[in-house]
Write a protein that binds this DNA or RNA. Structure first.
Lengths: 150, 150
DNA sequence: GGGGGTGAGTTTGTTCACCAAACTGACTAT
DNA sequence: ATAGTCAGTTTGGTGAACAAACTCACCCCC
């Protein structure tokens, strides 16, 4: 029996925070400017109790901030923190993949540059900035020091 | 009561395929060159039955392909299709976010350029290629035609 | 002041997926 | 013959998700 030693890696860590069923859809809405409970609930379809729980956990993770915009009754808006904003490439990556690879791509909310064109993600070398189009990428396993081609 | 009309969008569609708890971790392993059941199970920690289910659904989604590498007993390896390869920016985006924003970032498997440097994602304009560093991005809601700043 | 509506949840009861652990079947190694 | 591996499948229990109803604090309008 091979020992089960789940890799602790930043991908897993990030998914612990935003990898649950509704979290990224909640973030999609906030990115689109829908900041209040009712709108997020209507546009995602998340059950109300689950949505409340997700909003709390995204807040606890430092991804959303809750701002009171009225007292009596207290009402809140959810805003992205800097860390939340930094999830934009993930959402855009998911969107881009869906547009290209889903069997029957649904209409896509557009994320557009100020010049009017759609944005897209690109994987680049962190140092020289050169784009990697599938090739030239190697994964290195830290624990063993061995490298294998992707 | 606001009517619940879940947005059908490519982000949601993509998450229907890879948004479940273990799917992206399975893909991480395959990207890292771990292609067999036992290795994927050990490195992700996914329960065996759930892993079997996820491998089937990723195969059905056209993201993985099952290749028989021996008969008697039949044994399989899981390989990325072109569509699966195209999820690379999402994984790299999650990894990059984790490295920068997790409270206590775990050691990261490296995704390196052939020049030896870590890769990263960049959001660029699909047309002019100009990088967008947080600014200059607008979300357009197709259904209403209204635009709001992100 | 009574009736209807909204916004943001919480409560309730059921169903379902996840989970760990045990089991299977076909093999290999000693 | 015994033990071990690989790739699952089966089993039974538990927690989470789910839909629907309910709550609470308001506002509006007649």
């Amino acid at each position: 029996m091979t020992a089960v030693r789940p890799r602790s890696c930043p991908i897993a860590g990030t998914l612990d925070l935003v990898g649950e069923r509704w979290s990224l859809l909640v973030l999609r809405e906030v990115f689109m400017g829908v900041r209040r409970y009712a709108g997020i609930q209507a546009n995602t379809g998340a059950p109300r109790d689950v949505l409340a729980k997700r909003l709390r956990s995204l807040e606890a993770a430092g991804i959303l901030e809750r701002h009171r915009y009225q007292d009596r009754p207290q009402r809140f808006e959810y805003h992205l923190t800097a860390a939340g904003q930094a999830l934009e490439p993930v959402l855009i990556g998911l969107r881009e993949w869906g547009i290209r690879h889903l069997q029957d791509p649904p209409p896509a909310p557009r994320f557009v540059h100020t010049c009017g064109a759609d944005v897209r993600t690109r994987v680049v070398c962190g140092e020289c900035g050169e784009p990697l189009e599938g090739g030239g990428l190697v994964t290195v396993l830290e624990e063993s020091g061995s490298a294998r081609p992707a």
